[in-house]
Design a protein around this nucleic acid. Structure first.
Length: 826
RNA sequence: GCCGAAGUGGUGGAAUUGGCAGACGCGCCGGACUCAAAAUCCGGUCCUGGCAACAGGGUGUGGGUUCGACUCCCACCUUCGGCACCA
């Protein structure tokens, strides 16, 4: 064994060996229990960043640990490789998005390989490869057949800079999540996936996700936004039409003094036609619709409204109230119409005051009268008045009673609403999965038949952004024949949101080369669900919600059994430098290549695992990296020093033939092993697991100094074996080198995770803390098996204790076995 | 506004069920080795007072429960994250 730790030689050598031996390849014909360890696949932006290094180091520890524990571990890697940056690069550098993407993939793959990650590269997938997107298209067609994909004209978020539509989820604070340009609204015919059909199940099944962080579950619940309420149908005076409103406060319905419709409400057009204020109203609608969604829905936005000259009839009391339209009512939520009850809602109160609308109180406190006139909305509980037959009812009771009354009259009933909207998936972009639909003048919308898949991306396109999909510029692509009648037809030129690609990649990994289907059911059922998913919390809502949606749809189609895709989720924190996220614009990037070049992959991995627990943000520290490098060197020298002697003996320790020094060392080693095992498997405590290994190394150094020539070599060998095995998940290269130097011929990564000897961990003597009135006053070393009475007696006999308690009454003595004695005196 | 998480030395962070606060690492101080330096090894390092033994204080703030609280309860402050005119 080399005196010096030459990480470069070691890492290159073992990476080659592992690859040659196909060490991480797995299949389903295996008796061992399966374990699917998945990390979020990267977008091939060009280079790995530290966030990737952290993500994949964490995943690799889990995969390697489970492998050593005897699981059949699937640990795949791939590329989320469709997306806008490739197109931007195409525009900027005049290179094709495909070549830009594939070059990036090639480079990033070598970066990942240099990190020594235990991936089964045989299962690599790239979402931009026709072998992959063929099945993305096929899945879209299954959704289409089930009525889960549909096209409709919709007001959509539009990013003027990217010249594309954005999903609600991709609008952050009113701006495009990619380029930060303020988003506007426009009308387009777009494809949607009917995720709202699954809102109830996506919500209910969150409770099954016991292995997910509460934080993520709460975020998903809020996003789905279930709201229980009542629908009430108001007739429109002088017409046969009616308007249905959604409310969570039907108990206040007798207090309705007006109705408000969203400007885009379908009835508005009809109601204003031919009225005196038609022109005025139309102008107002145009103004509102010109506002982007963010401005319109921001809290500070001025609430503006206008009467439209029509009147509604309150179903509970027949009262005639004016109908208005206003900017604050949203077309996409509930029914797009609300009732105005200014007496009992803050927002309505302000609105009614501004427009001089009447205010009619109908709920008052149980033992007080409301001020007259009201100076603010009364939103507390109370009893009903001015409410016909419902007078005197507590308002909470009235909610149910009034809803039942509306239902009996056929003018409403209970209703559950969700904040979640259908998923807009059309993108006017080139570098995405083409939507496999053809438009024929004769046959209408025709799905591309399965045997004609994939619909390939054409090469002859222009990438200048002009608001239309670049695919429109490819005549060979657009012009096609109708699969149905054979006549001339046009292809759909929009591509799919890339979130679709990543909503099923974890299923493709289970059967990545399947040419006859997206994946075989038996393979998917063998591996799914994912046992451990690791990735950034920024995907807590979108990617994870979409993936759950896909899994449920595919499960309903009987393509896979599991109804949830990810059993356990670990959301790692960000990597920070100088307290903020690393970014090019801040110039605080640390390049993984440089760290690996300077210290090796093992040091880089050790640092990101040791510096903070995985869920928390990690502050980059060059000095911390140095420290990890020093630790590996310290381990190296320790083993190098002993290896010649240790390699000659077996690690068979006779516990009865050890002296005190030996037993103390052995205890540390076995305690460390227990600690590392528990930290990894129970709470992802990689940082504390590593610190425990460090303590063991410190103990070995101490033993070497103290025992000198008398060192017990079989014991030393046992310790060094443990050390290599425990280090294996964290620093796989150096662990393999040490393991090999100790005379083992098989890989440390296929070795079994060792089992500690519980007897060896038992302390012979323990230190008992002696407290007087809760303050530590003394310590007591007693045999481990001392009884409570013995400890108590000994504690009370201690000189210091006698001194402290003399002249005082002993009120109580608490003895906690193996821990402490607390003497309470007065 | 609503929901959630977190506040511990100079610093990153430990403390598993309510039982010695500060493990481990970084930094700093001292010692050994060396002609010297680097590297390495050993020791020290929460604050205040004291030569010391030791005493007092100490986990965002203020209360509470308890023999005992970083840990549990109540109120508040700060930071971060999510949602937000959702009827």
């Amino acid at each position: 064994m080399d005196e010096r730790y030459n990480f470069h030689a070691i890492e290159t050598k073992w990476q080659q060996t592992w690859s040659d031996d196909n060490l991480y390849q797995v299949d389903e014909s295996d008796d061992r229990k399966k374990y699917y360890c998945l990390v979020m696949f990267p977008y091939p932006s060009g280079r790995l960043h530290m966030g990737h290094v952290r993500n994949y180091s964490i995943g690799d520890v889990i995969a390697r640990f489970r492998r050593m524990q005897g699981y059949n571990v699937l640990h795949p890697m791939g590329w989320d490789s469709f997306g806008l940056p490739a197109e931007n690069a195409a525009i900027k550098n005049k290179i094709h998005p495909a070549s830009w993407t594939w070059d990036n993939i090639a480079y990033m793959r070598t970066q990942l390989q240099r990190m020594g990650l235990s991936y089964d590269w045989d299962r690599e997938v790239a979402t931009c490869h026709p072998d992959y997107y063929k099945w993305t298209q096929w899945l879209f067609l299954q959704f289409y057949e089930k009525g889960l994909a549909y096209k409709r004209k919709a007001a959509v978020n539009w990013c003027p800079s990217c010249a594309t539509v954005l999903a609600n989820e991709q609008v952050v604070n009113g701006a495009c999540e990619r380029c930060d340009t303020p988003v506007t609204t426009t009308d387009l015919a777009q494809w949607f996936l009917r995720i709202t059909d699954y809102a109830d199940r996506l919500l209910a099944d969150i409770d099954q996700l016991t292995g997910w962080p509460d934080k993520v579950k709460v975020m998903q619940k809020n996003w789905i936004g279930r709201s229980e309420g009542t629908e009430a149908t108001f007739g429109i005076d002088g017409t046969e039409e009616s308007v249905t409103v959604f409310t969570t406060r039907p108990d206040t319905i007798f207090g309705v003094t007006y109705l408000v419709l969203a400007p885009e409400h379908p009835l508005v057009d009809q109601l204003i036609a031919g009225t005196a204020q038609e022109e005025q109203v139309r102008q107002f609608i145009n103004e509102v619709r010109a506002e982007d969604e963010f401005t319109r829905t921001s809290d500070e936005a001025e609430k503006r409204g206008m009467e439209i000259g029509a009147y509604a009839i309150n179903p509970v009391n027949g009262k005639k109230v004016p109908i208005l339209i206003a900017n604050y009512v949203l077309g996409g939520y509930g029914t797009g119409a609300v009732m105005g009850v200014p007496a009992h809602d803050d927002r309505d109160f302000a609105f009614a005051t501004k427009y001089n609308l009447p205010i009619q109180p109908v709920i008052k406190p149980v033992d007080a009268e409301l001020p007259e006139p009201l100076t603010e909305a009364y939103i507390e509980d109370g009893v009903l008045f001015n409410s016909g037959d419902f007078d005197g009812l507590p308002n909470r009771e009235a909610i149910g009673k009034i809803t039942e009354y509306l239902a009996e009259k056929g003018q409403g009933g209970f209703k559950v609403n969700y904040r979640l909207r259908d998923w807009l998936i059309s993108r006017q972009r080139y570098w995405g999965t083409p939507i496999p639909i053809v438009y024929c003048d004769q046959c209408g919308t025709v799905p591309v038949p399965e045997e004609q898949l994939p619909v390939l991306l054409p090469e002859d396109v222009e990438f200048e952004p002009n608001g239309k999909s670049p695919l429109v510029t490819s005549e060979t692509f657009v012009n096609t024949t109708c699969p149905h009648c054979g006549g001339p037809a046009r292809r759909e030129t929009d591509t799919m949101d890339t979130f679709i690609d990543s909503s099923w990649y974890f299923l493709r990994y289970t059967d990545p080369k399947n040419a006859n289907g997206a994946f075989a059911k038996d393979r998917a059922d063998y591996w799914m669900p994912v046992d451990q998913y690791v990735g950034g919390v920024e995907h807590a809502i979108l990617h994870l919600l979409y993936s759950r949606f896909f899994q449920k749809v595919l499960s309903d189609m009987d393509m896979v059994a599991a109804t949830e895709p990810m059993r356990n989720l670990l959301t790692q924190g960000m990597v920070l430098k100088d307290g903020t996220k690393m970014s090019k614009s801040k110039g605080n990037i640390v390049d993984p290549d440089h760290i690996i070049e300077q210290y090796g992959a093992d040091t880089a991995r050790l640092f990101v695992l040791f510096a903070a627990p995985p869920e928390r943000d990690l502050e980059w520290s060059d000095a911390g990296v140095e420290g990890c490098y020093r630790f590996i060197n310290r381990v190296w020298r320790l083993v190098a020093d002993w290896v010649d002697d240790a390699a000659k003996v077996k690690a068979s320790v006779d516990p009865n033939a050890l002296n005190k020094l030996d037993r103390d060392l052995r205890r540390v080693a076995h305690l460390s092993l227990r600690k590392v095992t528990e930290e990894i498997s129970e709470r992802f405590g990689f940082n504390t697991a590593i610190s425990s290994i460090m303590e063991m190394v410190n103990a070995l150094y101490k033993y070497r100094d103290e025992a000198g020539d008398q060192a017990n070599l079989p014991l030393v060998k046992e310790c060094l074996q443990f050390l290599s095995l425990m280090l294996a998940p964290f620093v796989p290269h150096v662990a393999e080198e040490l393991w090999s130097a100790l005379g083992n011929s098989d890989s440390v990564h296929s070795a079994a995770w060792p089992q500690w000897d519980e007897a060896a961990t038992k302390a012979e003597e323990i230190t008992i803390v002696v407290q007087v009135n809760g303050k530590v006053r003394d310590r007591l070393v007693v045999p481990a098996e001392s009884s409570q009475e013995e400890i108590r007696a000994q504690a009370l006999a201690q000189d210091r204790v006698v001194e402290m308690i003399s002249g005082k009454d002993i009120v109580k003595v608490i003895v906690v076995p193996k821990k402490l004695v607390n003497i309470v005196v007065k």
